[in-house]
């Protein structure tokens, strides 16, 4: 199918009380994409997800899910969406399997069929042995995985994850990344909002950065990182080098044996190494500071 998974044009949202959450959002996400929506707290990410899933009413604009206008037939569009919200939103007194099967029921899947569908999903997400446990007794990571299982039970074509790995330990986070990558390879379009820039860089093909209710940048991640005008490198030296200067490079002293050097797009690492040689210092380690997308993100949101 060639149509876009999501088409958003001129989307505005003003909450009761006058808070403008979305000024004018235009966004297209292709079918099969793994897309990251980045933004600071309160930038409008969750509002967009709320509008897509029917929890938030739009003020103006047009939203299409796989070509279906949500204003004309939101229920038809909802059939194709699975959503993992930021906050836990299941009944804490219900059992894991019941929560998943119930969700299937809301999507019109009969109980017997839902039970058969739930088993492999709960097994993959390592929740099968907890199927009869009430949700409140699950650990934080298990609760997150339960929300993923619930979102997948009706086999959605579009999976929306709002900060899915918030508060999840590193090992589990990487496990979830692998699972999401597999889903995407199977053809599920994924829209992810995250605070972890590293997560977007590791998983997504395309990214949009939202600031104060407007998309300020939308492009493939590779294009964005290439567009950076400068990169910062951390240089570890074998011996102290206070007051070190390098010709054509801006140097910041971090501590006695560590400096940070900014390399402009027009410069090369070779030139930096030559300059370090010329300054007669021995380098023990050279590494990029932070990740590139984070640098870009901070540049854009702090403008």
């Amino acid at each position: 199918m060639n149509q876009n998974a999501i088409n958003i044009s001129g989307l505005k949202k003003i909450y009761k009380g006058g808070t403008v959450a979305l000024k004018e959002v235009n966004l297209t996400i292709q079918n099969g994409d793994f897309f990251a929506l980045l933004g600071a707290n309160g930038a409008g990410k969750t509002t967009i997800i709320g509008i897509l899933t029917g929890i938030v009413l739009k003020t103006e604009g047009n939203v299409e899910i796989f070509g279906i206008d949500i204003e004309k037939d939101h229920n038809a569009a909802k059939k194709m969406i699975g959503v993992v919200p930021q906050e836990f939103n299941f009944n804490f007194f219900e059992k894991v399997e019941d929560i998943v099967i119930q969700q299937a029921g809301y999507f019109g899947i009969k109980r017997k069929e839902a039970r058969a569908k739930a088993e492999p999903i709960l097994k993959i997400l390592e929740l099968w042995d907890k199927k009869d446990t009430v949700a409140m007794k699950l650990s934080g990571g298990m609760k997150r995985r339960l929300m993923i299982a619930r979102a997948l039970i009706h086999e959605p074509k579009l999976l929306i994850l709002d900060e899915p790995t918030a508060g999840v330990d590193v090992e589990l986070r990487h496990g979830m990344w692998d699972y999401l990558k597999k889903l995407n390879q199977q053809g599920v379009t994924i829209l992810l909002t995250t605070h972890y820039i590293e997560e977007a860089e590791a998983l997504c093909n395309n990214v949009a950065i939202i600031k104060e209710g407007e998309i300020v940048k939308s492009a493939p991640i590779k294009t964005l990182t290439k567009s950076l005008e400068e990169h910062t490198y951390v240089v570890e030296l074998n011996e102290g080098a206070s007051g070190l200067t390098l010709e054509n490079f801006h140097v910041t002293q971090v501590d006695e044996t560590t400096i940070e050097v900014i390399i402009k797009k027009s410069q090369s690492i070779n030139a930096l190494i030559k300059a370090l040689d010329a300054a007669k210092v021995t380098v023990s380690e050279l590494s990029p500071k932070g990740n590139k997308l984070e640098h870009l993100f901070l540049n854009l949101v702090n403008k």
Binding site: G54, N89, N91, G108
Partner: peptide, 15 residues
Amino acid sequence: SKFMKNYEEFMVSPA
């Protein structure tokens, strides 16, 4: 269901 926010389960569904 509003308090625990699980009303969202049917709100996001085509019911």
